[in-house]
């Protein structure tokens, strides 16, 4: 499978990348790891006439703490997320999730920015970013702005990214010390996209749930932040009754497609099962 022809650009600054995107308009697309875009180009589902490779821009990758945020550059690869001791210490759910994405080769190339900007409901990072209440730093020709991951996804492959804008970094509030976490993903085999998946972050005081945030992957046209399900759990002891109503609330907001991963109602139920498992594991990991 051979992609259509295109012109290749490798700007060295964000400013020149944005300028190229504006100048070339709809025919141009940013290129990060290429592991979502190149498959689309090979099957000719996408035929951009210009690719703006972000790989030549300095300063777009790296992981650092800045006050109360963890800042991850857009071109940071999934492989680097897995190897980061800062993330293992402060937000190990990012490592856990990254390890469930695709396979080792894909993870050397796939970037967090590409995974978040792509808009494919199958991507695992977006629901995790909603769970963590991340903000996306976007730069366009009018300057920079921030959009919450929870506001970013509008539909399948439709995001709040404006024409000419580049996602430069993801900013994640440093999670509370002692939090529990889990990403549970049902897939048919290693390397597959999720049939359904759930991200959970939780804090406990003794037996009581003090806060919880839930994200769901690949059970709607967008990732889902299950706000109501979380609300039903705060203040409870995560007893069976409360968990069952939270699971029902989460299932109620799903709207999956029927596809080779299963019929819609099965995938909805699996979202519930993943949430249940993630809650259990997150709780067992929470301290305090």
């Amino acid at each position: 499978m051979i992609p259509g022809t295109f012109a290749y650009h490798r700007p060295t600054t964000i400013g020149s990348a944005v300028a190229l995107l504006i100048e070339l308009g709809e025919d141009a697309r940013p290129l990060a790891g290429g592991h979502s875009l190149i498959p689309l180009m090979k099957t000719r589902l996408a035929s951009p006439e210009h690719l703006i490779d972000l790989a030549g821009i300095d300063g777009l990758s790296g992981i650092a703490r800045s006050d109360d945020d963890i800042v991850i550059g857009a071109m940071t690869t999934q492989h680097s997320l897995i190897g980061s001791s800062l993330l293992s210490e402060l937000a190990p759910i990012i490592r856990e999730t990254s390890l469930m994405i695709a396979d080792p080769q894909i993870r050397y190339k796939g970037t967090i920015g590409g995974n978040c900007a792509n808009g494919d409901p199958g991507n695992d990072m977006p629901a995790l970013m909603q769970c963590l209440n991340a903000r996306y730093a976007l730069t366009g020709n009018e300057g920079s702005r921030e959009v919450l991951a929870r506001d970013f996804y509008l539909g399948a492959y439709e995001t709040a990214l404006a024409a000419g804008e580049i996602l430069t970094a993801v900013r994640i509030p440093v999670p509370a010390a002692g939090h529990g976490y889990a990403y549970e993903k049902l897939k048919r085999k290693v390397g597959d996209y999720a049939t359904a998946a759930a991200a959970v972050m939780i804090t406990m005081a003794g037996d009581t749930c003090m806060s919880v945030s839930i994200g769901l992957t690949n059970v709607a046209e967008t990732p889902l932040w299950a706000e109501e399900a979380g609300r039903l759990l705060v203040g409870t002891k995560l007893d069976e009754g409360s968990v069952a109503s939270a699971v029902a609330a989460a299932e109620a907001i799903t709207d999956p497609a029927s596809d080779m991963r299963g019929p819609a109602d099965y995938r909805t139920k699996m979202a519930g099962v993943m949430l249940r498992r993630a809650l259990e594991r997150a709780r067992s990991r929470a301290t305090a």
Binding site: I38, D53, H79
Partner: peptide, 25 residues
Amino acid sequence: TGHCGACTVDIDDMSVKSCMTFAVQ
């Protein structure tokens, strides 16, 4: 399609599926 790994080569100390990468990259 990036699944099987038969095209794997090493690029700058990374295992890469060379059917999913342009030579220019």
